[in-house]
Design a protein around this nucleic acid. Sequence first.
DNA 1: CCTACCGATCGGTAGG
DNA 2: CCTACCGATCGGTAGG
Lengths: 218, 218
Amino acid sequence: MTRTPGVGDATREAILRLAADQASVDGLEGLSIGQLATALGMSKSGLFAHFGSKELLQLATIEHARRRYVHAVLVPALQAPRGIERLNALCDSFLSYVERAVFPGGCFFAAAMAEYGGKEPGPVRDLIAECQHQWTSTLQRAATEARTARQLKASCAPDQLAFEVEAALLSANWYFHLRSDTSYLDRGRRAIRSRLDADATPTGRLLLHSLAHPLRRA
Amino acid sequence: MTRTPGVGDATREAILRLAADQASVDGLEGLSIGQLATALGMSKSGLFAHFGSKELLQLATIEHARRRYVHAVLVPALQAPRGIERLNALCDSFLSYVERAVFPGGCFFAAAMAEYGGKEPGPVRDLIAECQHQWTSTLQRAATEARTARQLKASCAPDQLAFEVEAALLSANWYFHLRSDTSYLDRGRRAIRSRLDADATPTGRLLLHSLAHPLRRA
DNA sequence: CCTACCGATCGGTAGG
DNA sequence: CCTACCGATCGGTAGG
């Protein structure tokens, strides 16, 4: 019988949950097997045996964080109808995930991207880059669908739009945590709303404005 | 005689230069006194004696990086006339600094902001936050001056504009390094150009378009 | 600036 | 899952 990952292994899940929380604050490189073991009341070698190496622990932690991200950000947002509404929902969902502190140190993947951006390639960096690419693709796909549905102008470039939207999301995350000030999340909402408005057709603008207002006064 | 910092102390400067380069890749927390000493061909305790503690080394490294940043980004950009031209020059200068790899791991302060964003306050985090604030203020001041000179519309909010411009700069930095792809710097340039255009008056737009074109085809 | 050393912690292993 | 241990490295100190 091969082991089915994630099923019937509460200890492993508890380790990964704590590791992901910890990594969002101190980085994946800053993870310490000894510290995790102490915090969970188990021996270092007992914890180590679950993974086999620090790098494998890091990779498992990333996969765990990915599952949490999908659950916290993607699943709720994908309930919105395709197009500009979904694109807007993805952004709202991300900012809510930051505000709710799903990870205590801010967005896990933003932190990991910053940590590994300047490093040489390797399994950990590659997996982080793949997760990041998947999220960007999701934003880009929503933009493309919005353009196809004539909610965004034909002149709108979905890849450039995704870049700019992502930039506002990431910056909102950094500043919110560096300054402990929720007003930066509003700045992010405002930036995204006006950016979508700029490229929206009248149809798209109508849909956008029918949504719950992201700000008291937009 | 008190010691005049930065004068007649080539060893200290060499240490800080390497430390800042190193920190842009592995983080300020990842600095190792032993590794720095070995790389510079000196003893660990000899290097240590220059600073007195790891935290003081980190603080000195940040101040050194600040001087390099001022020299590489601010000084050239502040030669542009006040207003929208200077705001644009600050952005160009930043993206050029990223592209020239003034720090090997990307923007030192972007990396430090990401590293300390989720951590508890302390001298290192506070100094990083102050550096970040100073840069944001510089962008905001340029935007305010552009508005006063009627190069930006009266409806333009300089703090929001600074946030959005900074977001594009930071994201260009992350993606450029994560994917080793200069086209993300062009995405940043494009984002900033269209953002400034959107809030510019006809006067401001004229000035902006008279500048060297940031892209082959904008 | 150096050698020599401190206690603590690191990732990882042996053996059960 | 455990105890007991490995060599390497950490920040920092003593003494010169």
